[in-house]
Design a protein around this nucleic acid. Structure first.
Lengths: 134, 134
DNA sequence: GTAGAAGCTGGAGTGCGCTCCAGGTCAACC
DNA sequence: GGTTGACCTGGAGCGCACTCCAGCTTCTAC
């Protein structure tokens, strides 16, 4: 099964321009071409794109994705380094999640404060409704 | 207690340039100045900076932080809108955490694969050590 | 009273990750 | 065989969030 660039874009969630851009910078291998010179993405290409988008979503910088992409060409001998990249990246994702959860507590605290303000205002309005326009 | 811009930078974790930049774009109120025209940050200024960095860490775009910052000047009447911003932002942070956790599973799966490759290679090397150079 | 550190301003530059564009080719349908 | 639409290329442009710079002032310490 092969896919046009438009189909690959739709399935990967990347734009057509981004697909060509990723190819230019060496993040994806140049896909096959049809007789007219148009890109034909394979299922493997799409799988790689899917994985790339996970790395991107988790904030891996493009230069690191590129290093990983290029290591794949070296076969099994680069598996150690590739694993190392993923392990380090996983650690950074875990850190990031923890950081977000920390901030979440602050948000919750602030929101609770606003809710208290609201309930105080409600009380005021209930008891002194004419004060509402002051 | 007041703080020079260098002290404010150190305590907030932002750079001196970023503090001036935030002031320029209306994210922070212009702090007091000393007789020589230098900025004197107050404790409240620092608290606001601390909160801003939480918003930034959680990926709130500057234009939204600015909206929030400007609403503060309108007093209690803007509390509803401010709460709304925070509630919506909290939702987006929760989504983001979920997204990261989803990607984490893929990372774990890949890393497990690499570990299996490693253990297979170990087995090969143990049984056919001369094959290591092939 | 002078050297050096810290701060000031307005504005230009940077890095990232795309995104858009002009001008052209190619294939399919009427 | 002409039109339409998808795709091609190289290169320019963009939005974000800073970051850096030149040239100047001000405070502190000697």
């Amino acid at each position: 099964m092969t896919y046009s660039i438009a189909q690959a874009a739709e399935r990967s969630g990347l734009s057509i321009d981004t697909l060509r851009y990723y190819e230019r910078i060496g993040l994806v291998d140049p896909p096959a071409r049809d007789a007219g010179g148009r890109r034909n993405y394979s299922d493997e290409d799409l799988q790689w794109l899917e994985f790339l988008t996970k790395l991107r979503t988790t904030g891996m910088p493009i230069r690191m994705m590129r290093e990983y992409a290029q290591l794949r060409h070296r076969g099994v001998g680069s598996a150690g380094r590739r694993k190392q990249i993923l392990v380090e990246h996983r650690a950074s994702v875990l850190e990031r999640i923890a950081e977000l959860q920390g901030c979440l507590e602050v948000l919750n605290y602030k929101i609770t404060n606003y809710e208290q303000i609201e309930s105080k205002m409600d009380t005021l309005l209930t008891h002194y409704p004419e004060g509402a326009t002051a």
